[in-house]
């Protein structure tokens, strides 16, 4: 890639970051507290199953 192309990519990156900083920009739907809770419960269940597995 040439210097000009790299510069163009940097400018495009800057432009996209500017867009993300704009209050109007909608980020992808967030991972909500509920999702973290589901992940945590699944992890605890897996851990419990692994512990049970040790006694089989």
């Amino acid at each position: 890639m040439t210097d000009t192309e790299i510069k163009a990519i940097d400018e495009e990156t800057e432009k996209r970051i500017d867009e993300m900083e704009n209050d109007e920009y909608k980020f992808p739907d967030r991972f909500l507290k509920k999702d973290y809770e589901i992940a945590a419960c699944t992890a605890l269940f897996c851990l419990a199953m692994l512990l049970i597995g040790a006694f089989l």
């Binding site: 992890a43 897996c46 851990l47 199953m49 692994l50 089989l56």
Partner: peptide
């Protein structure tokens, strides 16, 4: 044994991946 293998393969993998 097979039952321990089943538990390890699914729950071991999922536990590590989830974190």
């Amino acid at each position: 044994g097979f039952r321990q293998l089943l538990i390890g393969a699914f729950f071991g993998a999922l536990l590590m991946l989830i974190i």
